[in-house]
C-alpha cells in the first residue's frame, strides 16, 4: 500500500517544475506516502497537506508566478485551450487523475467566468487507490443484493477513494457499472485508458455533466449500476431521479457529516425522502484513521 502511495505522490510530483520537483522528491518516504495535496501559493512556501495539517515542504523556497504557470503548462500538456471548460470551473485534471485546483483573477463576460488569469495559488490533489479498503463495506452492500447507496463524508474525507474501490469490486463481482466521471477524478483517464483499476466490466464516461452523462449512458450502455462522484446541484439530483426511474441502481457520493446533516439541507432532503437510496456509507475520520459505517435508510 505504501509503495502505491509513494508512486501516486511521485506521479503528482511530475507536475511540478524541475526545480521544485527535485526538492519535493527528497521528502521522507513515510511523509510522501501520506501527502494528500501539494499547495503552491505565489510568494509563499510550498506546502503539503497530510491529514488535517499543512506542512511547509521547502522552507527556503518562495513560489513564483512562473512556477504556477509552468505547473498548469505541464498538467495541460501546454494546451490550456483544450481544458477551457474545466478551467472556467477552477480545476484541471492531469494525467494520473491528479486534480489541480486553481485560483487567480477570473475574467468574466456577461457575469460568467470565461477564463482564469494570473494564477495566484494552486492545489494538486493526489488521488489514492487503496485496494482492499472497501472489503468489509462491500460485503455488507451486496449481502442481500446491491441497492442504491450514497457515500457521505466531509470534503477530503476519502469518498472518491471508496467510490473507486466499490466500483472496482462491483465490476469484478459481475455487475455492469457505468461511471460518469465529470471531472475525471475517479478514473483518471488519460488518452482513453483509466489510470486506476476500475474492474473489467466498467464503462467510463469522462467530462460529461452528470445529468447529461446519465442520460447518455441509459440510452446507450444498458448499465446495471450507475456511479458518480459528488452530488452538489439540482441538476445532479435530476440525474439521480432519472436513473432511479429507469430501474438502475446508483452508487454516488455527497459532502456531509452524516444522514441528519444531509437531511438538514433542502437539496438532499428531497432526495433522501424520495426513498431512492436504500443504504448510506458514512466515512468517519478518527485522527487520520478512516472507518466506514453502513446504515439502512429504509
Amino acid at each position: 500500500m505504501k509503495e502505491t502511495a509513494t508512486q501516486e505522490f511521485n506521479r503528482a510530483a511530475r507536475l511540478l517544475p524541475s526545480s521544485l520537483r527535485a526538492a519535493v522528491l527528497q521528502l521522507p518516504t513515510a511523509v510522501a506516502a501520506k501527502v494528500e495535496e501539494v499547495r503552491l501559493r505565489t510568494g509563499q512556501k510550498p506546502s503539503a497537506v497530510v491529514g488535517d495539517v499543512e506542512i511547509n515542504i521547502l522552507p527556503e523556497y518562495r513560489v513564483k508566478p512562473s512556477d504556477l504557470q509552468l505547473v498548469l503548462e505541464i498538467a495541460t500538456r501546454a494546451s490550456v485551450h483544450s481544458y477551457a471548460d474545466n478551467i472556467r470551473m477552477g480545476f484541471v485534471t492531469a494525467e494520473g487523475g491528479c486534480r489541480l485546483g486553481l485560483c487567480g483573477t477570473a475574467a468574466t463576460e456577461n457575469g460568467r467566468v470565461t477564463a482564469l488569469r494570473r494564477l495566484s495559488s494552486l492545489c494538486i490533489r493526489i488521488p489514492h487507490e487503496k485496494k482492499g479498503c472497501a472489503d468489509t463495506v462491500f460485503e455488507r452492500l451486496i449481502g442481500e443484493g446491491f441497492e442504491s447507496t450514497i457515500i457521505i463524508s466531509p470534503p477530503a474525507g476519502g469518498k472518491t477513494t471508496l467510490l473507486r474501490e466499490l466500483v472496482r469490486k462491483l465490476s469484478e463481482f459481475g455487475k455492469r457499472v457505468c461511471l460518469v466521471d465529470e471531472r475525471n477524478e475517479v478514473a483518471g483517464t488519460f488518452e482513453g485508458e483509466s489510470c486506476f483499476d476500475l474492474g473489467d466490466k466498467t464503462d467510463i464516461l469522462t467530462g460529461a455533466p452528470k445529468a447529461e452523462g446519465v442520460f447518455m449512458l441509459l440510452r446507450s450502455m444498458a448499465p446495471q449500476i450507475i456511479a458518480f462522484d459528488e452530488i452538489s446541484s439540482p441538476l445532479d439530483i435530476e440525474a439521480v431521479q432519472l436513473s432511479a426511474n429507469c430501474g438502475v441502481k446508483l452508487l454516488v457520493t455527497a459532502h456531509g457529516n452524516g444522514i441528519d446533516d444531509l437531511k438538514s439541507r433542502t437539496l438532499y432532503r428531497r432526495l433522501l425522502d424520495g426513498g431512492i437510496f436504500r443504504r448510506a456509507v458514512i466515512i468517519e475520520n478518527n485522527e487520520g484513521v478512516r472507518s466506514y459505517k453502513v446504515e439502512e435508510l429504509m
Binding site: Q69, E73, T76, S79, V80, H81, T114
Partner: peptide, 10 residues
C-alpha cells in the same frame, strides 16, 4: 502565448 491562453487568444 502558445499553450497558456484560450484558443481564440492564441
Amino acid at each position: 502565448m502558445l499553450g497558456k491562453f484560450m484558443g481564440e487568444e492564441q
